[in-house]
């Protein structure tokens, strides 16, 4: 049996993707990123990964979760606990452990998946807030409101840039493959009409469980990297509701249900946040609210929709019929 290039991956897209990843990987040396930018980009990688994974559930399956902070926090605290208990263990193993526990936790949310649309969203708010409270009071595990401190490792903090990039590349590739595969088709069918999907053989509960588990696991891993990055985590921040809202916002800004929209959205979100928090901390949440309203009203596909709209005249110009050759 010979290995064949998978049909759903256009070689040019794969090449462009690889080039992008390599460019980002060498950027710190080539561009001589300042520590500030280096940190900002690292955080962006983690947020992009989270937003992409959120989009599997919110964009592909169409179940909008307002509780992803539960998986993020759980992944972070499990990773931190593993690192504290066994400091000699390689950090990636601790992150994976965090992701696994977060994925299992997401599976535990199975009963909420019977709900659809707004009812599901409301249930996830409940689950997310319940998780925040439980883990805030569970001091033996999370250290309560004083949080957990990890030994500071500035070398690790520097290297997290590439770990974050790796995670992001993996999750972005997975997004592309899911969207292009028959799995993605079935998810979109569930999103369109869950009953009609069942009538052609799609088991909505199975695929929702699967995707919620995978999405939760990825968010959990990014929570683990986050814990390593900051060396200090605290339940009210890690499980905070605004973190859940953050995943929703990033994806909506970038384009819900599109493959790479969440990447754009997360980058814009991180930059805006950084700028607003520094300059107008009192306005920051309000401006996000306004942004959200404008996007939902005028461009439901977010920045991706906007780019498509802007590129249309350009493409029309590029495809214009060539002038008739003069005799």
């Amino acid at each position: 049996m010979s290995l064949r290039w998978p049909e759903i991956v256009p070689p040019r897209a794969a090449l462009a993707f690889a080039a992008g990843v390599v460019a980002l990987a060498v950027a710190p040396w080539v561009l001589g990123l300042s520590p500030y930018s280096h940190n900002l980009v690292t955080l962006a990688f983690l947020m992009v990964s989270g937003a992409l994974a959120w989009n599997w559930m919110g964009g592909f399956v169409g179940q909008v979760s307002f509780g992803h902070a539960a998986m993020f926090g759980l992944g972070g605290f499990v990773a931190a606990r593993v690192l504290l208990a066994a400091p000699e263990l390689p950090a990636p193993l601790a992150w994976i452990a965090g992701g696994l526990v977060a994925g299992l936790f997401a599976l535990g949310a199975h009963p909420t998946l019977r709900l659809r649309g707004p009812y599901f969203s409301i249930a996830t708010i409940g689950v997310g807030e319940a998780a925040r409270l439980v883990f805030t009071y569970w001091e033996d595990f999370t250290g309560g409101s004083s949080g957990l401190s990890l030994p500071i490792d500035s070398d690790m903090k520097y290297r997290l840039y590439w770990w974050g990039l790796g995670l992001m590349a993996l999750v972005a590739a997975a997004s592309f493959l899911i969207r292009r595969s028959t799995l993605g088709l079935q998810l979109l069918a569930i999103k369109a009409d869950v009953d009609a999907a069942a009538d052609v053989g799609v088991s909505a509960t199975f695929y929702q469980d699967l995707v919620f588990c995978l999405s939760g696991a990825v968010v959990g891993v990014s929570g683990g990297l986050w814990a390593s990055y900051f060396s200090f985590i605290e339940p009210n921040d890690m499980f905070g509701f605004d973190r859940s809202i953050g995943f929703v916002l990033m994806t909506v800004i970038g384009g819900v249900g599109t493959v790479f929209g969440p990447v754009l959205g997360a980058i814009v979100f991180v930059l805006l946040r950084q700028f607003l928090l520094a300059s107008y901390p009192q306005l920051y949440l309000g401006l996000y609210g306004l942004l959200l309203i404008f996007i939902i009203l005028f461009e439901p596909l977010g920045l991706t929709g906007l780019l498509l709209r802007l590129s249309r005249p350009l493409r029309r110009w590029a495809d214009r019929p060539a002038a008739a050759p003069s005799p």
């Binding site: 369109a192 009409d193 999907a197 009538d199 052609v200 053989g201």
Partner: peptide, 24 residues
Amino acid sequence: VRTHQIVRPFPNLSVLENVTVAAL
């Protein structure tokens, strides 16, 4: 397998994709 009196295609998928989902 059944069909519905009021047809329920998946509007976000192409005609071919609609049928491919079922063919799986």
